[in-house]
Design a protein around this nucleic acid. Structure first.
Lengths: 253, 253
DNA sequence: GTGCGGCCTGCCGTTACGTGAGGGTCAAGC
DNA sequence: GCTTGACCCTCACGTAACGGCAGGCCGCAC
């Protein structure tokens, strides 16, 4: 009964050493040992290994994988769903990179050399530094920027996580309203715009209605932002901009 | 002129230490040094860094990257083309993994546990050798599963997409009927149950009314399955189960 | 002229294993 | 009953690609 290290290694396409390592660090210990000390892996062990390899493939550190898998609140199906979503996100990222490479090829054949910023856009994770620098260029050391910089400097990693999560929720709500057919000057859309403004005020700087208008305009003008929203729902950026303006108009009365 | 380590690091989204390391191992040495020994990166260095980061992202070891980039036979355009192809291959692989996860999810919701081989098919090399034999050893008796397995083995990626899409549509229709107040033994609900049965027969195995009853019961009994439907609409699982039973009752007459 | 941020060079730490060394285990074959 | 070869065990050191800190120069702004 059960599988030996070698068998498991062949099945899963990993080395025996890897399995030994997972045993050492407590990530995957075989269900049993034979009388002579041989590792014996059960079917449940195989299932766990499958998940381990999956998360590993997606770049998770082993320690984190252990935490994820040992979470009593999530079963096999939860993991499969999470894995599916992670895969889709990853695919989207690679497709963006492919598009960026196509752009670079085009630029290259036309003899245009990219600006330093354009060069590394490809690896577009959300980098606060980038925004900071750009913000300074655009608003040249205004009061708002100073406030933003001071606050953001104090933020911990957890703060950033909460910040981005909150932003993502608002964006999704916008997308829902948009696909749901609510006009940009509807109550709901303006409510979301207000929420967005509050979000910025809370985390970054005092965002007046006028500044907010400027932000909205920037969203549609800056391809880096549109690249963020448009893949989800075409036209969403414009919709958000319009909602922001409608909300500002209302407040002006 | 030129960029300092810090500037390059911010631009490219890497740490200063990483640039130091690339300098140490000779992968990317700055074109110049200032009189005081400061690293000064040129535009050409930035271009090289871009390629380095690209290949790194795709999992190439640094040493290999150096070989690739120092190959005199390939210019920037060659690299871009190669990168594009690598990306596409990578995307294809992830899509296969996503399809495999979908398969695992379906197996899971149907209460089927995968064979060891199926478990790790996801990660690349598929070895068809003694596949048939083991499956028979483990599941030889159950006619329905054999049929299901044979059919699913033949399904393409697109088939899986259609399959899950179809399943999702039926579920949504159930949710609509439920929230619309239609009783579980209404014409509409039973019609949907019949559609569900046809769906399974078409894609998986001959689903008799009795088997269908069993499935319905399993849906409510298995928390992993309810976890799938309940968040959308509370009580939906029970509703589906009741509709399936009502439909089976009607057919028995 | 003295901070203060940025840069330098070591140098040790870490993750996820690779790669033997030295030595038991087990089914097969002579 | 004994060997043989494939497989298993536990140390234990090696490696890649950095992370992070110490101790010490720059450089310019106040």
């Amino acid at each position: 009964m059960g599988y030996s290290v070698g068998q498991v290694a062949r099945l899963a396409g990993v080395t025996v050493r890897t399995l030994h390592h997972y045993d050492e660090v407590g990530l995957l210990s075989p269900g049993q040992r034979s009388a002579s000390g041989y590792r014996r892996y059960t079917d449940a062990d195989l299932e766990r290994l499958q998940h381990v390899l999956f998360y590993r493939e997606l770049g998770f550190p082993l320690e984190e994988i252990a935490v994820i898998l040992d979470d009593p609140g999530s079963d096999a199906l939860t993991h499969l769903r999470r894995q599916h979503e992670l895969l889709n996100r990853r695919i989207g990222r690679l497709q963006e990179m492919a598009a960026a490479v196509e752009r670079a090829m085009e630029a290259n054949t036309m003899g245009i050399s990219l600006t330093p910023e354009e060069r590394f856009e490809i690896f577009g994770d959300f980098r606060p530094e980038d925004h900071e620098q750009e913000a300074e260029e655009r608003w040249g050391g205004t009061e708002a920027f100073e406030q933003s910089r001071r606050r953001m400097a104090k933020m911990t990693k957890d703060d950033w996580a909460r910040f981005t999560a909150e932003a993502a929720r608002t964006t999704e709500a916008f997308a829902e309203a948009f696909t749901g057919g609510l006009p940009a000057d509807s109550e709901r859309a303006m409510e979301l715009a207000e929420e967005h403004r509050a979000h910025i005020t809370r985390w970054c700087y005092d965002c007046s209605y006028e500044i907010h208008r400027g932000l909205g305009d920037m969203y549609v003008a800056d391809p880096r932002f549109t690249a963020n929203y448009e893949p989800l729902t075409a036209g969403l950026t414009q919709y958000i901009r319009d909602a922001i303006h409608a909300n500002a108009d209302r407040a002006a009365d």
